[in-house]
């Protein structure tokens, strides 16, 4: 089958698959941002158990392979009577993974500020809240733009885990294995279409993040 035939027969499927990949990416990334902020707050709080839980969370989910986590969520959890829809399983997995890396990005951003600035802020009489609001958070957010762009791209690539469970509709990777198993003559064209979609979206997101970063970067 050549390019035109594939597009004619599966064009609609590709359109829905792109939407599925993108919507899962957007949802997962937003949730991951919220959770990574929470985890980061826990990790910088003066309360030891919260710090420990935050550190443990990050170490677990940045070191576990995506598939190992997905099978736990999708196939182990039902055994302890937690049954989630397939799509939710993938989303939970992606959010857990992405939020660990997100928190690492925020921590790196906070660390880059330097103790001197905090001491300076305190010595001119800023309160803790003022130091956080005026010094720490703005800088941490600005220096996180580039790493977060990379995380957004990585989140999109991680949604390919959806190919490991029966999703309906399928995302870009699952669709390819569906087409190849269904039409034996499809060859490598379906792969190329999906790959170009992924790579194109990655480059696009990268360029966008780079532009934002140039505008808000803190020069040190």
């Amino acid at each position: 089958m050549d390019f035109a035939q594939i597009l004619e027969e599966y064009g609609q499927n590709y359109a829905t698959a792109i939407m599925q990949t993108l919507s899962m990416t957007a949802l997962c990334f937003c949730l991951a941002m919220v959770i990574s902020i929470l985890i980061t707050v826990m990790r910088v709080s003066p309360i030891k158990p919260l710090r420990l839980v935050g550190d443990l969370y990050v170490q677990i989910f940045r070191n576990i392979p995506g598939v190992a986590l997905l099978v736990l969520v999708a196939y182990a959890l039902p055994n302890i009577q937690i049954v989630l829809p397939w799509k939710t399983c993938v989303e939970v997995t992606v959010v857990l993974l992405a939020s660990a890396f997100g928190s690492e990005n925020f921590m790196t951003g906070i660390n880059a500020i330097g103790v001197g600035q905090i001491e300076a802020a305190r010595s001119i009489g800023l309160t803790f809240t003022q130091t956080m609001r005026k010094i720490v958070i703005p800088q941490a957010l600005r220096s996180a733009v580039l790493p977060m762009t990379n995380l957004l791209i990585a989140t999109m690539l991680t949604t390919a885990l959806g190919s490991q469970v029966p999703l309906n509709p399928q995302e870009l990777t699952g669709l390819v294995s569906y087409i190849t198993t269904r039409s034996t003559g499809a060859g490598i064209v379906p792969f190329i279409i999906s790959a170009v979609c992924y790579a194109g979206m990655s480059v696009l997101l990268g360029v966008l993040g780079n532009r934002i970063d140039k505008k808000v970067r803190v020069l040190r």
Binding site: I153, L157, T158, A160, L161, S163, Q164, L172, T173, V176, S177, T180, T181, T184, G185, A186, G187, I188, P190, F191, S194, A195, Y198, A199, G200, M201, S202, V203
Partner: peptide, 23 residues
């Protein structure tokens, strides 16, 4: 470089597992 950085490894694996044998 941009291609391999921008494509999920799972898709590459499926390409070697399902795609290449068809050719």
């Amino acid at each position: 470089i941009d291609f391999f950085r921008g494509v999920p490894s799972l898709l590459l694996i499926y390409f070697f597992y399902l795609g290449l044998p068809t050719v």
